[in-house]
């Protein structure tokens, strides 16, 4: 008597509203609150429910290769292009950008604020005794951080600490240890536990952070809801989506700058 009830309850999960797409996403877009601001507009317009799995760019790319999603929204341009070249994605389009910033303790023991470039700033960190908290998780931010060290990152486990966790967890560790760390601006501005930490270096062109959208290829993944996925990509790179991104602000600050080219 109980069995059919349970079976029904189990299936209910799978049978929920069919008009949804799954977006494999980086965490910064979710943690910053961007999705909460713009997705309701898309959902109201199209009736398509957007389910965001926010896991970090590296994990998102791997999940997408397993066909567990319809759309990718990440920030690692080279890896994204490889994804398309390998036949997993249809096309890659720019969506928006912001920038990475080097954060650290307010008293700045490595004196990075006075350096002329991010490369010099990182060298200064390495030369000091101050710790540096790295994601170490193959995310978009991690890949960028690794590429910014002129001679490659210092050996792990000295003052260079690989947390192996997401941006938020890494920032929590950085705050606790008063360590330097590289993060995207949106995540930092919406991060609450800033505890004696501040942005110390910014503005270097090397810190440019481009986000892209990819519709996963139905050739590689027959389960992809191509029509709805394409509609989402078109929307977020179109006028409505772009202006929704532009108008998302935290206080005075605009967190992402739309730059889709169509």
């Amino acid at each position: 008597m109980k069995a059919p009830m349970i079976a029904a309850a189990l299936l209910a999960g799978a049978a929920q509203a069919d008009t949804f797409i799954t977006v494999q996403s980086t965490t910064s877009t979710q943690n910053s609150g961007l999705y909460d601001a713009i997705l309701p507009i898309f959902e109201a317009e199209t009736g398509i429910d957007v389910r965001v799995v926010a896991v970090g760019t590296g994990q998102a790319l791997r999940n997408a290769r397993s066909c567990d999603g319809d759309v990718l929204l990440v920030h690692a341009k080279e890896a994204e292009e490889a994804f398309v070249t390998d036949g997993f994605g249809l096309t890659r389009q720019d969506v928006m950008y912001n920038d990475f910033v080097l954060i650290g303790p307010v008293d700045d023991p490595a004196n990075v604020a006075d350096q002329n470039s991010i490369a010099e700033a990182l060298v200064a960190v390495a030369a000091s005794d101050a710790p540096f908290a790295s994601r170490g998780d193959d995310s978009g931010t991690h890949r960028r951080e690794v590429s910014l060290w002129p001679d490659g990152p210092p050996a792990s486990g000295t003052t260079y600490l690989e947390t192996g966790q997401g941006m938020g967890a890494t920032l929590n560790i950085a705050a606790a240890l008063q360590a330097y760390s590289l993060t995207d601006r949106a995540t930092w501005l919406t991060f609450a536990n800033t505890d004696g930490m501040t942005i110390l270096h910014e503005g270097d062109p090397a810190l440019f952070n481009q986000y892209g959208v990819i519709v996963i290829s139905p050739q590689a993944c027959p389960s992809v809801k191509l029509e709805d996925a394409q509609r989402f990509a078109d929307w977020i790179t179109g006028d409505t989506g772009q202006s929704a991104i532009a108008s998302y602000r935290l206080g005075e600050t605009q967190l992402f700058t739309p730059n889709a080219t169509r």
Binding site: Q16, T22, T27, N31, Y35, D36, R51, V52, V53, A54, V55, G166, M167, G168, A169, L171, N172, A175, T190, F191, A192, N193, T194
Partner: peptide, 24 residues
């Protein structure tokens, strides 16, 4: 579950998310 808002977000994953936002 993927911690998808309104679909698969439960107490523990919400706690993990708020921790990662620094909302300790």
């Amino acid at each position: 579950g993927g911690n998808i808002d309104h679909v698969t977000r439960v107490m523990t994953t919400t706690i993990a998310l708020e921790t990662s936002r620094g909302e300790l």
